[in-house]
């Protein structure tokens, strides 16, 4: 039976009665747009295998999200585009040529375990894409650290029949790491030469994850996000600055290389800036970025993995509630 109402049926709501034109889906769309340059560069360098990885991750994430929401008997949240974004980010953090079933497993983990278990967008303590990547790195260590060489565009191509090669980071670790003995060997110079040139590092002509190689494309995306006021400068700047200063002080590989290679750029601009898992205040964001950079470099320098960016961000995700607690803003007029 239809509810009884009066003729003049007015909307009753609490103030304010007007709203800025912002929405969650628009924010997610902006991040996706900002990721397009690096996606394009990834596809350019890694070819069809990159396309497949991206397609599989994104579609699996969407399907998993839909199924989870159905299982939970809650309204669908596909429309907010967060699942698409998670899938894209995950794909961009995977090496091209990874068996696709692994990408599927990772995507399911990202959405089902790292996000929907906690109730969906806004509740997850860890960045879903990063949690999934860490899960995959530990479960499928081999395939996850097998890097496809950028197809046919690598200048330092000594043996054309080799399709995989070490990332510059791994090479650097071998060369400059704290227990490196390589400098004594005659291969040292050759290894140095095998590092990509600065230009290659900027455009992304080096082995690595699909989306992390092209620093320029990532910088363009970050600039777009800053312009759209989707992110603030605090986390990227403090993250990258910490990495840079740390490597200046610690010595070893040139500091700019530490910034340009590996996941620092994508991590600082796209992963660490994830709203849900990063602090809300400006001060907290600075601390967060600093912590990410520091942990990232500690793991790079001393840890068992050549790359520590995702772990660093995950650990800082865990510390984020405490940072939020410590950096509550002081109200206007409070003592």
């Amino acid at each position: 039976m239809k509810p009884k109402t009066t003729e003049s049926h007015l909307v009753l709501s609490s103030s304010p009665h007007t709203h800025a034109k912002s929405s969650v889906s628009r924010i997610m769309l902006d991040v996706i747009i900002a990721l397009l340059p690096t996606t394009a560069m990834g596809i350019w360098f890694f070819g069809m295998s990159a396309v497949w990885t991206i397609a599989v991750c994104v579609s699996t994430c969407i399907v998993t999200e839909a199924l989870c929401r159905m299982a939970m008997k809650r309204e669908s949240t596909i429309g907010d585009l967060s699942a698409v974004l998670t899938g894209l980010l995950l794909a961009l953090n995977l090496p091209a040529g990874l068996p696709l079933w692994m990408a599927v497993a990772g995507s399911v983990f990202a959405i089902a375990i790292a996000k929907q278990v906690f109730g969906g967008l806004g509740m997850n303590p860890f960045n879903p894409a990063l949690a999934a990547r860490a899960f995959m790195l530990i479960s499928f260590t081999g395939p996850m650290t097998t890097w496809l060489k950028p197809i046919c565009r690598c200048k330092c191509d000594a043996a054309p029949d080799v399709l995989t090669m070490a990332t510059p980071l791994a090479t650097m670790k071998r060369l400059f790491g704290h227990d490196a003995t390589a400098s004594a060997t005659p291969h040292f110079q050759q290894a140095i030469d095998s590092l990509p040139s600065t230009w290659d590092m900027l455009v992304g002509n080096m082995p690595g994850c699909i989306g992390e190689v092209s620093a320029i494309a990532l910088a363009i995306g970050a600039a777009y996000l800053l312009w759209r006021k989707v992110i603030t400068w605090h986390i990227p700047v403090s993250f990258i600055a910490t990495v840079y200063v740390y490597s200046l002080i610690a010595g070893g590989a040139p500091a700019y290389m530490q910034v340009l290679t590996g996941g620092v750029m994508i991590g600082a601009c796209f992963m660490a800036t994830d709203y849900v898992t990063s602090p809300i205040t400006a001060k907290g964001k600075l601390i967060f970025g600093f912590g990410c950079g520091l942990l990232c470099m500690l793991i790079r320098q001393f840890g068992g993995y050549p790359e520590g960016c995702s772990f660093a961000i995950l650990i800082m995700n865990a510390i984020c509630p405490l940072i939020n607690r410590w950096t509550q803003p002081k109200p206007f007029g409070a003592k």
């Binding site: 278990v117 906690f118 860890f126 530990i138 793991i299 840890g303 995702s310 995950l314």
Partner: peptide, 21 residues
């Protein structure tokens, strides 16, 4: 249940430290 999942993820994050010392 959720606490256990969280603990698991936290443990996953701490895996990053392996080999540090």
């Amino acid at each position: 249940a959720m606490a256990l999942v969280t603990g698991g993820l936290l443990s996953l994050a701490f895996m990053g430290f392996s080999g540090l010392v």
